[in-house]
Simulated scan of single mutants.
Amino acid sequence: MFLARLAGVPAREIEPDDDLSGIVWIDLINPSTEEIDRAEKALGIHVPRREELEEIESSSRHYERSNVLYLSSPLVRRVDESAFSYPVGFVLTAQKLVTVRYSDYYAFDVVGRDIAETANDGTLTPDQVMTQLLEEMINRLADILEGLGRTLDDVSRKVFNADRPRKRANAGEMLRETLRRLGRAGDLASMIRDSLLGIDRMLIYVGELPGHVLVDGLKQRLKVAGRDVASLNDFVAQTMNKVQFLLDATLGFINIEQNDGMKVLTVVSSVGIAPTLIAGIYGMNFKIMPELSWHYGYQYSLMMMTLSIVLPLLWFWRRGWFGAR
């Protein structure tokens, strides 16, 4: 999609014969090769492809070429319980800002609506649009982090809740679901950290670039955005620590559940040994066995086997291996 975003009017699709001279922000959404080629021909600048935006070297993400500034960063997108990370690119010239992205992002929609509702007085600049986009991207990442924090709080309550399911099957399913939620939370926190790192590097590069002049107001806004990113990075570090703590706790509860299962098997096997031994001894039918011709020998052997079952069960119960005392 090849969109033109202008002040005072809604976004519109750019046609092949449109004049791009008065357009400050050109938004390429999941562009095809033909659309990128058309943008390059109309603007006379290089527009990076997806494989270029996915480069991880800092020199490939932030550079200046022929007075054109190229910036890129991964940006996380959360949809329901799933999260995805796609590259976002900025191409900044003195007259235009070209954004290249491969997914819909709420931050871009918010800034686009704000620009469409702004009076077209000719004061809108590409620097202002990019600064506003970076600020809104940071705000959106903060919202995602807040949601992630609430998710981890909910997981924490379930993990450490005293009224956990008493049925072993229900407890096992709860712990498995907890592991899945923690895995998704860890992936999301990692993608948020990558996004914040990319934005932070962009802010540092633009702020320290001697050839690109920003007005004082924009410089101050970028400094504030940098402080916001630093605070969010601290929150992400805390979140990652909490994910690891909850993961360790969940694995600990799983080990406890497994130990409880082994206790049951131990009790069953231990209780069955003594009566089996007694039954084996009195089942040999040797003539020299004194109980062989005893009138109460059968009842005696049954009583011995019953006691050999009851006494170990009482011992295990008193030690708390099963049941509730």
Rank of each mutant, 00 (worst) to 15 (best):
R157Y: 11
D153M: 08
V155L: 14
P165K: 05
S190Y: 06
K167P: 03
A169I: 08
F160W: 05
M191A: 11
E177P: 02
K167C: 04
N161D: 15
K167D: 15
L196K: 10
I199A: 13
L152S: 00
L196Q: 12
L148V: 07
L209T: 02
A171C: 04
R166G: 13
D154F: 10
R166M: 14
V155I: 15
R150M: 11
M202Q: 12
R193K: 07
P210T: 00
D187E: 14
V159D: 01
N161G: 14
G207T: 13
D200Y: 03
R180D: 05
R193V: 00
S156T: 14
R150T: 11
K158H: 11
L197F: 14
G198R: 02
L203A: 04
L152W: 02
R176V: 10
R176P: 01
I204K: 07
R201G: 12
A171P: 00
V155E: 04
S195Q: 09
R201T: 09
L148P: 06
F160Y: 13
L209E: 10
G147S: 13
P210N: 07
A169S: 13
A185Y: 06
L188D: 10
K158A: 08
R157H: 15
G147F: 00
G183I: 09
D200F: 03
G186V: 00
P210F: 01
R150I: 08
G147A: 11
L197M: 13
L182I: 03
R166D: 10
K158V: 12
P165M: 06
D194A: 12
R193I: 00
D187G: 14
V206F: 00
L175V: 09
L188R: 11
L179P: 00
A185T: 04
P165N: 07
R168V: 15
S195A: 14
T151W: 02
L182P: 07
L182H: 11
K167V: 04
D187V: 15
Y205P: 04
T151M: 14
L152Y: 02
D187W: 04
R157A: 12
Y205M: 09
R193L: 03
L197T: 15
E177V: 15
Y205A: 12
E208F: 06
F160P: 06
D187N: 14
